[in-house]
Design a binder for these strands. Structure first.
Lengths: 226, 226
DNA sequence: ACCTGAACACCGTTCAAGT
DNA sequence: ACCTGAACACCGTTCAAGT
């Protein structure tokens, strides 16, 4: 055994905000939001608390930066789509997939919706609506409807991922449990949910999400053309 | 001064889950979500920790029950509206107003969307869509679009309320600050947000919310009738 | 400037002990 | 059954001290 005064090995390369954010993303992806503790970060980065606070204001700042890091890529990857309708669907799908892959991002977006990453989303949506010949004065409400819908789904996704993780079941049996609970609902008082319980197997979150986007786009077209 | 061994006066009436939930709602409304600590509850209820844990599983259970308590009333208060289109708008407006009055509810709904209260919302929305002659197989996606949109706005409202409280500014100057920050954005890279910054004064959250609901309803009508 | 890590001021939750 | 409150196992954050 080593001397008792021996300390954990310290890092040699300099710390930076970016290194910290990447470590945070890795922890969040691997173990979820509540696993991101300052202690876990000091261990992973082989450093002390003060070193982290030297580059980051507080835990919320870090969580926000981590979300920006993930979402930033999505918006950047869209640019090339020419057809505005397809571009809108691409932004929506890109966000959906990013949030499905990193559920903690969904929770973060609903918590701090004014983050730079969402600014770009808002801007991109607005520009594409403009390209769709939506009248100037109708753009803000239309963009708001789309973005708020996306944020709603994002929140749901995050909540589902949390529930799935907490249940410690695999996805299959977890869904079966949800379906069973719904199917047990009184079919007189809760006819729609009762029925949904019987169709959950063939339910596809991604398809339903896109259907919602198309519904809103159809509404925007209907309101502005007649 | 009294004896140092003197203790805080204890309550005489029995505690109950309902009394605890009401106390929680009072704290949440007055001081926001992070003010709801177990310690604050013991003080307010003049009791001990164990007494609370005897009626409530944990803090999350309590937060959920508090949200149900607020949302339950909203759905119950709608029932009477005959025209399905008006009933849908009434549900949406009821939720919006409840969340505006109790912003912590918005955060809670996005965190645990399977709560009983939301079940009733989903059911009510589905029934009214059915009454609007939306085909059976289109109801789930349509209801999902509406509910997810509502949840998205709910989350935004909660986030705005948190930011407003944290800023310790009054609503007026807080909005002016936001508008100023947006107006400062590069008008080339962020034309839509730049412009939005100049119109924030005349912006009405409630009106924009309803515009979104109408947009989605128009989309549902357009997709299903052609 | 950048980093260390003990210490501080909190949390939610438990549980032996009381009535 | 219902309640008490000290104690436990954590948090995020600070700051005097080091390099």
């Amino acid at each position: 055994m080593a001397n008792k005064a021996q300390r954990a090995p310290r890092r040699t390369e300099a710390l930076s905000r970016d290194v910290i954010v990447q470590a945070a993303v890795a922890i969040l992806d691997a173990e979820g939001e509540e696993a991101l503790t300052l202690r876990a970060l000091t261990v992973r980065l082989a450093t002390g608390y003060g070193a982290i606070y030297h580059h980051v204001a507080d835990r919320d700042d870090l969580l926000g930066a981590a979300a920006d890091h993930v979402i930033g890529r999505v918006v950047a990857d869209i640019g090339g789509v020419a057809d505005p309708r397809e571009a809108l669907r691409a932004v929506a799908m890109g966000l959906f997939d990013a949030i499905a892959a990193h559920p903690w991002v969904g929770a973060q977006l609903t918590r701090e919706p004014w983050r730079p990453a969402l600014l770009d989303v808002y801007e991109s949506v607005s520009a594409n609506l403009h390209a769709l010949d939506v009248p100037e004065r109708a753009v803000p409400d239309s963009a708001g409807a789309l973005v708020n819908y996306i944020l709603g789904v994002a929140g749901q996704n995050a909540a589902n991922a949390r529930a799935l993780a907490a249940s410690k079941l695999d996805r299959e049996t977890f869904l079966a449990n949800v379906a069973a609970r719904w199917a047990q609902l009184d079919p007189v008082r809760y006819p729609a949910m009762h029925k949904a319980g019987r169709h959950l197997r063939e339910h596809d979150d991604r398809e339903q999400f896109l259907a919602g986007i198309d519904l809103i786009l159809a509404g925007i077209a209907a309101v502005n053309h007649t």
